[in-house]
Amino acid sequence: MSMKITTRQIDGVTILDLSGRILLGEGSVQLRDAVRDLLAKGQKKILLNLGDVTYIDSSGIGEMASALTAVHHQGGDLKLLNLTKRVHDVLQITKLYTVFDIKDDEASAIASFA
């Protein structure tokens, strides 16, 4: 199963609902392009909803790290929502758990951007 991204806007926050596998190749490129497009449009408050992500590899993790850096460079913020246990474990092992702002409730995640 490849990755799918759908986009929503709530209270000035862009929510990217990701599902499937974020892997080297199509998945990580999709994520890179999606974040790049949002930044180009000036949408700098980004919430990645990873609740339906079944798998992530080192390329996908790297893409999320690069996305965070890119958003911060533009003066925005990028947060993560609804980590599955697998994604959580990988982020913890790679210590990225300490650099991302991670939420488990959408409403409070959106409010935290204000």
Binding site: S58, G62, T98
Partner: peptide, 15 residues
């Protein structure tokens, strides 16, 4: 290196 876009593959294998 924490926010680098690559370089975690071998680390994950070892983990």
């Amino acid at each position: 290196n924490l926010l680098r876009g690559s370089g975690r593959g071998i680390f994950l294998i070892r983990s």
